Computed example of a mutant assay.
Amino acid sequence: MLRNNYIHSIFQVIIIVYLPIVILLSILQVYALNENFYTKEFKKNHVSENTKIELEDLNRITTELIDYLKDRRNDLNIFAEIKGKKSTVFGEREKKHMKDVKKLFQRGFILRNVGIVLLIGALLGLSKISENANKAIYQSLLGSSILSLGIMIFIFVLIQEDFYKYFTYFHKIFFENDLWMLNPKTDILIQMLPLDFFYDIATRVIGSFVGIMFSIGGISFYKLRKS
């Protein structure tokens, strides 16, 4: 009996912890690998004017960048017409940074996929060992929603206060070097993806995440009250 209670608790903790991770990484993938989102941001941030690269070429470069992050191509030796002259788009520092970014994305994909497997296992496990499986599952979903919403709202408040500050903290935590410190006057990568781009993607990811977790929490609370 004690062993079942212990396993029961482990399954609930897995749901509480991994559900928001899987949802957050999935939403991030939707935006970070969405070519239409990039095109809208290029127009909004006047990227064509700043880089002297036509929008059509910017879209092609984006396609190749996304293919690189998806591991569909091995390098970023990309050429485009810049200021009327055909030349390489990214310098060595930019390529090295994107190699680090790619590694981060690949780890994120692995974490998300492992999380999906653990979630399925935990849900099936609760269904088998719990006397009231539905209640246990809804309790886990509600707990996950409350915890993740609290954390995400706190993060949203912080980035509203000073996005650049916490964007910098993010890079210092997840990157072991300073290759991410690019020159906006000379480096095409940061001209294509300025700070406003990352602010927009962050707020959209947070907004979508909050909406999904709030819905899950609301449905779970309703089901628990009804039962």
Score class of each variant (00 low, 15 high):
59 N>A: 08
59 N>H: 10
59 N>Q: 15
61 I>N: 06
63 T>I: 09
63 T>A: 10
65 L>I: 15
70 K>M: 12
71 D>V: 12
71 D>P: 00
72 R>G: 06
73 R>I: 06
76 L>Q: 03
77 N>S: 13
77 N>V: 07
78 I>E: 12
78 I>R: 09
79 F>Q: 14
80 A>V: 03
82 I>L: 10
82 I>M: 04
83 K>M: 11
84 G>Y: 13
85 K>D: 04
87 S>E: 15
88 T>D: 06
89 V>F: 03
89 V>Y: 02
97 H>N: 09
100 D>C: 03
104 L>I: 05
104 L>D: 04
106 Q>F: 03
107 R>W: 11
107 R>T: 09
109 F>V: 13
109 F>H: 07
110 I>C: 01
111 L>F: 09
111 L>A: 15
111 L>E: 07
112 R>C: 13
113 N>Y: 07
113 N>Q: 11
115 G>E: 04
115 G>R: 01
115 G>S: 08
119 L>S: 10
119 L>T: 04
120 I>D: 11
120 I>W: 08
122 A>I: 04
122 A>F: 07
123 L>C: 13
123 L>Y: 07
123 L>V: 15
123 L>R: 01
124 L>H: 07
126 L>E: 01
127 S>T: 09
127 S>Y: 14
131 E>P: 04
134 N>F: 10
134 N>A: 13
134 N>K: 14
135 K>H: 08
136 A>T: 01
137 I>Q: 00
139 Q>P: 00
140 S>K: 01
140 S>Y: 00
142 L>H: 00
142 L>W: 00
143 G>Y: 05
143 G>L: 08
144 S>A: 15
144 S>N: 05
144 S>M: 05
146 I>S: 01
146 I>Q: 01
146 I>Y: 01
147 L>M: 13
147 L>I: 06
150 G>A: 06
152 M>Q: 05
153 I>V: 15
153 I>A: 11
154 F>Y: 10
156 F>C: 06
157 V>T: 06
158 L>N: 08
158 L>E: 07
158 L>Y: 07
159 I>W: 06
160 Q>G: 14
160 Q>N: 14
161 E>C: 12
161 E>N: 10
161 E>H: 10
164 Y>Q: 13
166 Y>D: 10
166 Y>Q: 10
167 F>D: 01
167 F>Y: 14
168 T>H: 09
169 Y>S: 14
169 Y>K: 14
